[in-house]
Design a protein around this nucleic acid. Sequence first.
RNA 1: GCAGAUGUGAUCUAGUUGGUUAGGAUUAAAGCCUUCCAAGCUUUCUGCCCGGGUUCGAAUCCCGGCGUCUGCACCA
Length: 495
Amino acid sequence: MPVDVQSLAKRRGFIWQSAEIYGAMAGFYDYGAMGARLKRKWEDAWLKYFMGLNDNYHLIDTTNILPYAALKASGHVDGFTDPLVECSKCGHAFRADQLIEDVTNEPAEDLTLTDIDEKVKELDLKCQRCKGTFLEARTFNMMFPVPIGTTGKDTAFLRPETAQGAYLNFKRHFEIMRRKLPLGLTIIGKAYRNEIAPRQGVYRMRELIQAELQIFMDPDTFSESLNLEEMKGKMLNVQLVDMRGEGNFKPISCDELIQKYKFPDFYVYHMMKIQEFYLDIIKLPAEKFRFFEKSEKERAFYNRVHFDIEADLHTLGGFKEIAGLHYRGDYDLTKHQEGSGEKMEVSIDGKRLIPHVLELSFGVDRNVWTLLDIHLTEERTGVLKLPAVLAPYTFAIFPLMRKDNLIPVARDIHQKLRVDYDVYYDQSGSIGKRYARMDEIGTPFCITVDYDGLEDGTVTIRDTDTSEQKRVKLADIEDIARALATGRKTFADLE
RNA sequence: GCAGAUGUGAUCUAGUUGGUUAGGAUUAAAGCCUUCCAAGCUUUCUGCCCGGGUUCGAAUCCCGGCGUCUGCACCA
């Protein structure tokens, strides 16, 4: 029986559509009891790893609503839009640039609204449905507008990316953190995009969670703060633009990417760190992970170097973007300097500069989905083989049977471990059924109190990945739990 | 957003030339049994996406909405 990720995600409490009792809205999702735990664990692992790269990287939290002026300056008010023309008769709206391109066969992407109105007249364009005439062109912005106050005159938007919060706060944090570069600002939070056609589950959402690290740095000296030696001999799974169509990726050494392909060494260093995160912490199989270079056309114009980080997901039919590494130059701070009139220039050792930004941007929902997609196997009745640090529950405690002499011992272990760890207690149904439940939600270790153990003071620990069991001393259980939960020991290390 | 397909308990599904109390499997809960991998037995809970229409009668036909899937378009 094949294991369906989607229905397991619902049935076992991971993730499903928001407001489903009212028929749901496309592009909005809720996390349930297991999903919220899994998401939190992913975020914790992500924070621990990437904040650990430098002492001067800090977690901040900024508003979901941003003023018009900030998003005007960032380019989102103008750039995050599509021009539309609406039929005066049937009210149907069309993409104006496409209507024009269809007739002229010339790119119409950069036309202003006035240009479009002229072109529509000139080419005598009519509604494709009812042949009605078009009203004046207007823009459809992908940002959700938010009216503020009683008059709603102060317009604002839900943020389309968390990154802006870091840029807006850069200057103050530079001061607070004693004027040092690199300075990293991390935000984990919601972003909102009014997608025209959200589809493919959590892959394209209207309300999404981002985990982003914005590193403000001097490109001339940034590398000095990094241990570039770590890149020695390291290979990265890379698909360069000119390698398209030649398989999924090619392992290329960090050295070659820097020397031959001329990517900045600090950029390649962070590629290496990201790969390490996915392979070592998230435990993605190497063949399901790659960096996918975006061509000049595909990437935003302000990105000087842009690779997507992709995972091979069978539920979505192949390699899909789950994160991005963007070298944005000084575009963002320069824009906010122009927009706000606040100086973004800083002075370090007599050198004045507007810091450049290296952005590490992760889609949290996509990453949580990736965990389910990659780690859910069809073994037995479906086993979610999560690393211990990511599992919603780390331990489950069972009495072998619902019997008076077994229950108090199991309860006692539960009480002890739940203080420090996420522990699931279960005594209903057969032992096999209880193991199967834990298999499905990815609890890596099940501790069972049995009759033999009552006599010699032991319990069994079962490894979910293999369903193998080992017998350990009850007196050692807290030490063993600590080692397993932190990942300092694996099941194989147990005697 | 366009076109086509589609929507039945928590999950998966049977049932639609309109006709009795919409059937099954799994899950879940309670109990019995059980000395380790969804065993068995008994009992129990939950359903025709929403709103109109046609009809003596609608899960079934029609219209609209919402959701989902596929293709196209979109993805700063």
